[in-house]
């Protein structure tokens, strides 16, 4: 009974995402599936970032580097070495996790804005490096051999499969986020977020805990990168490491509420929904970026805890459900 209640917080997130997956399946509509894919991808990435940002309190402005790097490595093995997409996704996740481990040892010593700046530098350095790296196709990037799709029953089937893998990765991201949040490890991370020095005095081994949080927040983005470039059929440096995408992820986490499992989901929904509306709206289409900017500014200034944080503050009885 007690255990069941501990996991209540995961229920709403799982239901929301299950609805998201079933929607295109039920309607059988391909463009719904594309939209759903985009939102699931945003949820998976934002939830991963939330482990570092929301639970640990470190602001990464270059989190997309793990998506790009893992994606490149995975696609290279799928495309050039003939590995299956499954093996490619696995190697993409592992290599991003490894990168995070090495980077984390170095840059997690930095605090506050210095850490944020370092993550920007790393993303830009990586982008510039891949641009020069011939094995990954340099500035041209890599294009998937069409024959690769044949193993999965042709392009259409491969895209369908990609959608289900995306759904699986999103569920994995949510479960990981929930497990971290409700674990002892997660309690240590939250202590670091609130006051790193006090946490260390209480025995939290902050350097290790931060590094593992960084690693956990990097693995799923690496896997999503492989899947997305596989589905897209190609990858280029500026598509793999867009700085603005890192910031969009921050916005999503912030919109929904940092440090909660549900927050990044709501944030991803709201952000993608708003963008979808603005891009197609005849009035706002030309200045959609500005309108997004105004909305973001209003949220940062007036509800910095995000939607879920705001609800939790107003209605404490919802705390257990809106974890």
């Amino acid at each position: 009974m007690k255990n069941w209640r501990n996991h209540l917080g995961l229920l709403v997130p799982l239901l929301v995402v299950a609805g998201m997956v079933l929607w295109p399946v039920a309607t059988g509509n391909l463009s719904n599936r594309e939209n759903s894919f985009t939102i699931l991808k945003a949820i998976a990435l934002a939830s991963s970032l939330n482990i570092l940002l929301g639970y640990t309190g470190y602001v990464s402005f270059g989190h997309i580097v793990f998506y790009g790097f893992g994606g490149y490595v995975g696609l290279y093995f799928v495309n050039e070495q003939g590995w299956s997409i499954w093996a490619g996704i696995l190697v993409g996740g592992i290599s991003s996790g490894l990168l995070a481990f090495l980077l984390g040892k170095a840059i997690l010593r930095l605090r506050g804005a210095y850490f944020a700046l370092a993550t920007i530098g790393i993303n830009e350095a990586m982008k510039a490096f891949v641009n020069n790296f011939d094995l990954f196709g340099g500035p041209i990037g890599m294009t998937l051999n069409f024959s690769v799709y044949r193993a999965y029953g042709g392009a259409a089937e491969a895209l369908r499969l990609s959608f289900y893998i995306m759904a699986g990765l999103t569920f994995a991201a949510l479960i990981l986020s929930h497990l971290v949040r409700t674990s002892k490890f997660g309690l240590g991370l939250q202590a670091i977020r609130e006051n790193e020095d006090a946490a260390e005095v209480m025995g939290v081994v902050a350097p290790d805990a931060k590094t593992w949080a960084y690693v956990l927040s990097a693995i799923i983005p690496g896997m999503v990168g492989v899947l997305f470039f596989f589905k897209n059929g190609n990858v280029e440096p500026h598509v793999a490491f867009p700085l603005h995408a890192s910031i969009e992820l921050l916005v999503m986490v912030m919109l929904g509420g940092q440090g909660t499992v549900l927050g990044p989901i709501i944030g991803a929904f709201a952000y993608q929904g708003m963008r979808g509306f603005l891009v197609t709206s005849p009035i706002f289409k030309d200045i959609q970026l500005s309108v997004s900017g105004v909305v973001l500014l209003l949220i940062v200034l007036f509800i910095p805890a995000g939607a879920i944080g705001w609800l939790r503050q107003r209605i404490p009885s919802l705390r257990r459900v809106l974890a």
């Binding site: 910031i247 912030m254 200045i287 970026l289 500005s290 309108v291 997004s292 900017g293 973001l296 500014l297």
Partner: peptide, 13 residues
């Protein structure tokens, strides 16, 4: 960071 980034978005837009 996000407040000044939103100004960035507004100007660029």
């Amino acid at each position: 960071l996000l407040a000044t980034f939103s100004v960035n978005m507004i100007i660029i837009g």
